[in-house]
Design a protein around this nucleic acid. Sequence first.
DNA 1: GCCATTTAATGAGTGCAACTCACTTAGTGT
DNA 2: ACACTAAGTGAGTTGCACTCATTAAATGGC
Lengths: 240, 240
Amino acid sequence: MKGAARARRRERLPRDERMAEIMVAARQVFCSKGYEAASTAEIAVAAGVVEGTLYRYFPTKRDLLIKVVEEFYEAILSDYEAQLKGVRGTWNRLRFMIWKHLSVMHADPDMCRLIVHELRPWPEYRRSRIFRLNQRYTQSTLAVIREGIAGGEFREDVPLRIVRDMIFGAAEHHTWAHLRKEGEFSPDAAADAITNLIYQGLERRGHPARSSGVELNRLERAVQRLEGLATPRRRKRRSA
Amino acid sequence: MKGAARARRRERLPRDERMAEIMVAARQVFCSKGYEAASTAEIAVAAGVVEGTLYRYFPTKRDLLIKVVEEFYEAILSDYEAQLKGVRGTWNRLRFMIWKHLSVMHADPDMCRLIVHELRPWPEYRRSRIFRLNQRYTQSTLAVIREGIAGGEFREDVPLRIVRDMIFGAAEHHTWAHLRKEGEFSPDAAADAITNLIYQGLERRGHPARSSGVELNRLERAVQRLEGLATPRRRKRRSA
DNA sequence: GCCATTTAATGAGTGCAACTCACTTAGTGT
DNA sequence: ACACTAAGTGAGTTGCACTCATTAAATGGC
């Protein structure tokens, strides 16, 4: 009894390392085939272990996906709040958040598809860490709107929940085709359009002086011209 | 050999009738348990047939769901366009469409959940009838926006696709908890809020004179930011 | 009314994929 | 060297979507 059958490596790793290896393999397979089409057998092979081993670390295939997504999500959000602190002004802050959100979806459509189309509809979603992380995330959007209200830029009767739903709903619908690899979109252009629509939608109307006019028009055009010039590629921060 | 085992009814129906009966039963089961948890065995029992019979009418379980949803969707949309014709004015027409959409989700959360959370993420969705029905549906929303532009109520540079994504995205996010039976919402209140936000967001701004300080301020800042980004470095791409 | 033909309906399979568990053996501390 | 711990195994089991050879209810020609 030997030959090919006996060729298995059988090297043993500490719990954390093996777990990490499985998660890397699982992410790979989930991303390339989607949740349903990814079989535990395939993930096991990719991880260099046998199927039963997966179940020593993750109670179910679903839990495995959840863990993989949690890891991804935490990495995304880790520096998010810090970055937001560096942006001033309601419009800019709003725009940054929307842009950031769209950019993640643009950069990692596979993982985002897993979150949005596979994991989120599950019943256990609301009990998962991802749900809570996401709440914190959308909360900061509302905080920006509240600042806008407090500062007098926005109306006082803004329906906060609806605004949040609009921003994230718009982002989701807009990126939908891209997540399925059936289309493209520009995070920059979309962020501008969404931000402007929301901003104008919330703006306090007929204040002291009436809005707009020649001056505004001129600036709006300048913005548009510059927006076109600013290549999406370049994101370097200008040193003070 | 007889008794209970021989008690089967075995009555034969014409194709259409049997198909209809199966679809009624399937809808019932799908709605109450969700797609995954609904087993073909259970649907068969509910329809008063044996499992194999299902497969004489529907090639797969997925196809069965698709047919069930198509039937529902067509019923919903059948009189929709006619009703819309009876509403006058951009704001009213917009409001009617959003309200109608939300009302359907409110009235039939189970079916809507099947569409939004289960069926739509599937790869075959874009080839299904539902996709095309949905397109026609969202098209009519855009038509209303275009009327608004043509009539001078809305700005000319409205990003149509984004507006559509915002309306339907907002509706979807807003109804999300309700579809999962984890929350409630008011179609009327939500329709008002969304319509107003969109309407104000698209509105053509004051022709009159002076600009508001806030708006100017925002634009001035945007211009400054963009001036920084648009460095002289980049010229148009050289044609090959 | 009787048989031939058609086809609705059956139900005992098949195959595949998630998940289990009694066992094996690589590492470790003494 | 030796016992002990726990990582890893792989041959199951289970459950479900789906198949197919067979049965028999309706239909129609004579």
